[in-house]
């Protein structure tokens, strides 16, 4: 097969050391975005520096620990798990990597076979060129969240998350109306997101470096496809 296949242990070690397989461009982009987001945050001194600067902060720290312990006790007593499902936790999932291969396209070509509670994910490739790249499934606050990932020809990447069960309340941002349905436009750092409901489920479409108008166009198109 390959003449470069090592024949001895020392050759094998050299081979392992010589591998220069680069990380995918999409991963580099996501790391760059994380670092940029970190740089945009206001500088926060380390805990030690804060305690040295303000001895009174020690008392506040103890109080905060006590409060955290109380929350944990209440959480355990209530059988709950954190973090709770919200548009932020769902959009965080859209920035992570896929764990399974892309879902197949459905018979009508407008939807994928992947669905949550009968609500199918859209197939945007024919209309917009965004093809599916993978899917992941997570449990957030005891709720199942399925996320399908899409990428366009320029390497941009977005994630579409649908949470099982009733949609949680969402506030903030601005609301855009399409075909009588409200779409909430939100952002967190460099991440743009559109949050809306389909079949009573919360849907979150989010990505880094993708403008809100594009996300809104895609999100509202999926509703059209579902209605047709």
């Amino acid at each position: 097969m390959s003449e470069r296949r090592p024949q001895t242990e020392s050759e094998l070690v050299e081979h392992v050391r010589a591998l220069e397989e680069p990380a995918p461009a999409a991963l580099h982009a996501r790391i760059d975005a994380l670092v940029a987001e970190h740089a945009a945050r206001p500088a926060r001194p380390s805990l030690g520096a804060r305690l040295r600067a303000r001895p009174a902060a020690l008392g506040a720290g103890v109080a905060a620990l006590a409060a955290l312990a109380a929350v944990l006790v209440l959480s355990v007593a209530g059988g709950g798990s954190s973090p709770a499902l919200s548009w932020r936790t769902a959009s965080a999932l859209t920035l992570r990597g896929a764990t399974s291969a892309a879902p197949a396209v459905g018979r009508d070509r407008a939807q994928l076979t992947a669905a949550v509670g009968g609500v199918a994910f859209p197939n945007w490739e024919p209309a917009f060129g965004w093809r599916t790249t993978g899917v992941r499934s997570d449990s957030v606050g005891g709720r199942q969240v399925t996320t399908v990932f899409y990428a366009d020809g320029r390497g941009q990447r977005i994630g579409y998350a649908i949470a099982a069960g009733p949609a949680p309340g969402v506030s903030g941002g601005t609301i855009a109306w399409r075909e009588g349905a409200p779409y909430r436009m939100l952002s967190a750092g460099a991440v743009q997101a559109v949050v809306w409901q389909r079949g009573g489920h919360m849907c979150v479409l989010a990505g880094r470096g993708v403008d809100g108008a594009t996300l809104l166009r895609l999100a509202s198109w999926s509703d059209d496809a579902r209605a047709s």
Partner: peptide, 28 residues
């Protein structure tokens, strides 16, 4: 940190055994 992404990706791949898990692990 960004200069180490490639090397860390290879290390993550060798730890997990799959490209997809490695990407997830490096980002996390």
């Amino acid at each position: 940190l960004t200069q180490h992404v490639d090397r860390l990706y290879r290390a993550a791949w060798a730890l997990c055994g799959s490209r997809e898990d490695a990407e997830d692990l490096v980002q996390e």
